[in-house]
Amino acid sequence: MNEIPVSIKINGKQVTASVESRTLLVHFIREQAELTGTHVGCDSSSCGVCTVLLDGDKPVKSCTMFAVMAHGHEITTVESLAPGGVLHPLQQAFWDQHGLQCGYCTPGMLMTSVALLKHNPNPTEHEIREGLSGNLCRCTGYNNIVKSIQQAAGVMSQAIPAAADD
């Protein structure tokens, strides 16, 4: 066995474990960090339900990364979005707009949306649809997901006034 010590800061907490080099990041998150909000979907890098943020703002598919590659990096998962149980504006918007049916794809949709709104706080509908094109949902047909992100973008841009030189 090629066990290797891996230490990753997940949602601000350092998680250290020895794992096989072939361990995928998503399994490290679910089994070592015991955070099961990040789902495994297609097993072929297509569906995006396993999306997490690498080093704050880069959405990555955690099923297409070895845990060893994240050693020394920071990972943010869906569990970080609602500290103290207060929903993130995106989570609230998914609730308000019925942005989910079965909810399986939602963690990935949320994390991709967090990154999308960080890069582009006021995306057009087209930009939202393009930004989500790496995330598959098999129930909602996407319209309500797009509406959710539009609602959240509105709420978040009101909450944080743009800088004068923005």
Binding site: G48, T51, P59, V60, T112, G131, S133, G134
Partner: peptide
């Protein structure tokens, strides 16, 4: 650069 794979894959 806008059509390679999908937007998430392009970050890695």
């Amino acid at each position: 650069s806008k059509v390679v794979a999908d937007p998430i894959v392009r970050h890695m």
